[in-house]
Write a protein that binds this DNA or RNA. Structure first.
Lengths: 172, 172
DNA sequence: CCGAACATGTAACCTGTTACATGATTAC
DNA sequence: GTAATCATGTAACAGGTTACATGTTCGG
């Protein structure tokens, strides 16, 4: 119980999950996973990932052991304390049920204030972008954890498309 | 065109919208609106709102005029440049279509890795919290912009509830 | 041998958070 | 008069972003 971290941040939880549930054992692999994932909002910048991992190691939630081979790489592993923290973070109902930062939702009210022509154009542009996103997401991820996240992202996008369709219909 | 702000942040856009589309004319009213709104993720802290307004004034997107009466209050108004910036911000398809920071989505994959009993408990706790949120949101907002946002928040929560129901059904 | 990918980090900067400070006005 | 609300701000801190620095290893 060396943990000095009371509640994990979203990034810290995501990092723990990345190491524990997915095959990412080095800090670099964790960072790259964030960079490649199109659905995650963070940039996966080194200036965020490496300090986060250092914090987690300091708190005893991650253990780092030098890897065999010439590479400087350190093999990361989530400790039992880390698993407990990760579970607590993932299962906190208050945080899980939060709406989060939803750029679409934030803008939705504003679109309704716009004149019909501009509104229609804006809605159709966003719908096109969402369809592009859905097509991209069609490439199935091999990892079950990420696949589940993609699945929910697609549901969210379909919900948005439905809403846009209703808005456009109300304009016609 | 004194604007030194290239792209508005989410908070800056929300502040402009708050002043322009809703009746909030002073910095204090804007701040309070953020604090009261249960759906917005930011805390509506003075340390965020006041500097944001100062930036927007500096960029010429907001005009501030002293209000009549003893109060120190300044009446804020979105300038024409501000309206243009707000519209551009609201209608940028890339940003509007983004998934955002979704705590539920981030955790969804992790829940699937949990043993059935714990998973069921976690899912039901989150579902209960979502239902509580939906009940709260039932209180209809008088403002059309905020009401639209609430409506979308409720859709999102219902989508989540559906997903949880399917997950629980697959466990049975 | 050379470029791409691996691997780890640091520094300056920006923005949001909490917590505090200050004072005026209004309702009771 | 005194408590609540209005109104504006600052300071210390936390955390993420970009951009840079550094060196290794592997494939062609």
């Amino acid at each position: 119980m060396t943990s000095s971290i009371a509640g994990l941040t979203e990034l810290e939880g995501a990092v723990l999950s990345e190491i524990h549930h997915r095959a990412n054992r080095t800090a670099f692999q964790v960072q790259r996973a964030f960079q490649r994932s199109p659905s995650v909002e963070w940039s996966g910048s080194a200036g965020a990932v490496y300090p986060a991992i250092r914090r987690l190691i300091g708190a005893g939630l991650i253990a780092a052991t030098p890897m065999a081979g010439g590479r400087k790489a350190q093999a990361l592993e989530v400790t039992s304390a880390g698993i407990a923290a990760l579970t607590a973070w993932a299962c906190d109902p208050m945080r899980a049920a939060g709406v989060g930062l939803d750029p679409f939702r934030l803008r939705s009210g504003i679109w309704r204030t716009m004149p019909d022509a501009a509104r229609r154009m804006a809605l159709e542009a966003v719908a096109a972008e969402i369809r592009r996103d859905l097509a991209r997401e069609g490439a199935v991820d091999t990892d079950p954890v990420e696949r589940t996240r993609d699945e929910l992202a697609m549901r969210l996008q379909r919900t948005r498309l439905d809403w846009i369709a209703e808005e456009l219909a109300s304009l016609a």
